[in-house]
Design a protein around this nucleic acid. Structure first.
Length: 264
DNA sequence: TTCCATGTTCCGCA
DNA sequence: TTGCGGAACATGGA
C-alpha cells in the first residue's frame, strides 16, 4: 500500500495518536526489520522519551525523538501503523511495538517485512545516503526542475516516475494513475514526450498525490475519472468506457487504457 | 500448487 | 554511464 499518499496518511495517524506520549517500553519481535540499529540501542533511545513531531520524505516517515534524532519508518509493500489500547488488539504482524505510559501501544505492522525501521540524526543526510531525490510534493520540485529531470532520459516514463532518486514518493499504483490522468502511455520514452506533455505530467503528479493524500489514499474515495479503483484487466475505463489493459513495464504490472493513453 | 502482490537493491547485460 | 529485466527478499491470499 505505502506510496507517498499512504505514508502521508500514516503521518496524520501518528500525529493524532502517539505524539507526546511517554514511551515506557520498546519491543522488537523481528530484528530483521531493523537497519543500522540494534534492538538494545533503539530501546535505550526511546525509553522515557516521546515522539515530538513527524516529517515525511517520499515513502519514509520520520518521528523526532525528544532529546535527539529521528525514528525512521519505511513500510515496504505491506506496512502500516496501528494504535490501540488493549494489547490483545495487537495486530498479528506487529514487528515493533512502542508501549506508552498511558497503556496504549503503537505498532509498526509489516506482514512481508520488506520495510525497515532505523534511526538517524538528520533527515537531509539520511535522504542523501539513501540517494533519495526531492520529495514529489516539496517546493523543491517546481516545473522547471521537473522538466530538467526528464531531460535526456531515454528510458520509459513510468520507471522514471518511480525512480526514487529522481523524485521520491511515487510507486507503481500512483505512477499508473498519474500517467492515466496525463493521457500518457507508460512505455513512452521520457525524451519523446512533448513539452506540453511534460508540463501536463508535472501538474498531474502534484494533483494526483495531493488528491489521494487528502482522501486518505482510499481508492473508493478517489474522484470520478480515476483509474485507481479499476486496477483489473477488462475493467471499464472511467473516462472512455473502453477496457482497461494490463501489461508489464520494467518488471511491474501496469494498468492503463489503450484508448486514452495511446503510444506516441 | 502456482501465481501474484502498492518496495528496494543488486547483478548482468545492452 | 544509463537504463532495463530478472532475481532476491518474505509472506500469505486467490
Amino acid at each position: 500500500m505505502p506510496e507517498l499518499p499512504d505514508v502521508e496518511m500514516f503521518k496524520g495517524y501518528l500525529d493524532s495518536t502517539a505524539l507526546h506520549k511517554k514511551i515506557r517500553k520498546t519491543e522488537v519481535s523481528e530484528e530483521r526489520i531493523l537497519s543500522g540499529v540494534s534492538q538494545q540501542m533503539l530501546a535505550r533511545r526511546l525509553k522515557g522519551s516521546e515522539l515530538e513531531e513527524t516529517k515525511r520524505h517520499g515513502k519514509y516517515l520520520f518521528a523526532r525523538i525528544r532529546g535527539d534524532g529521528w525514528l525512521v519508518l519505511h513500510f515496504g509493500m505491506t506496512g502500516e501503523l496501528a494504535y490501540y489500547k488493549d494489547p490483545h488488539d495487537r495486530p498479528e504482524h506487529a514487528r515493533m511495538v512502542l508501549r506508552f505510559e498511558n497503556g496504549y501501544e503503537l505498532a509498526y505492522v509489516s506482514q512481508r517485512m520488506l520495510g525497515q525501521v532505523s534511526i538517524t540524526g538528520d533527515i537531509e543526510s539520511f535522504a542523501a545516503e539513501r540517494g533519495l531525490g526531492p520529495d514529489a510534493l516539496s517546493g523543491e520540485v517546481d516545473r522547471e526542475r521537473f522538466l530538467e529531470m526528464l531531460e535526456g532520459r531515454k528510458g520509459m516514463i513510468k520507471p522514471a516516475l518511480m525512480n526514487q532518486s529522481m523524485i521520491a514518493g511515487i510507486g507503481n499504483v500512483y505512477s499508473d494513475e498519474i500517467l492515466f490522468q496525463a493521457k500518457v502511455n507508460p512505455k513512452t520514452p521520457a525524451n519523446k514526450l512533448s513539452v506540453d506533455e511534460k508540463k501536463r505530467l508535472y501538474r498531474v503528479v502534484r494533483r494526483v498525490l495531493r488528491t489521494a493524500a487528502r482522501n486518505g489514499a482510499d481508492p473508493e474515495k478517489m474522484p470520478r475519472g480515476y483509474i485507481l479503483p479499476h486496477r483489473e484487466e477488462g475493467s471499464k475505463c472511467p473516462v472512455c468506457g473502453g477496457k482497461v489493459k494490463k501489461m508489464t513495464v520494467s518488471g511491474r504490472t501496469s494498468y492503463y487504457c489503450p484508448r486514452c493513453q495511446r503510444r506516441p
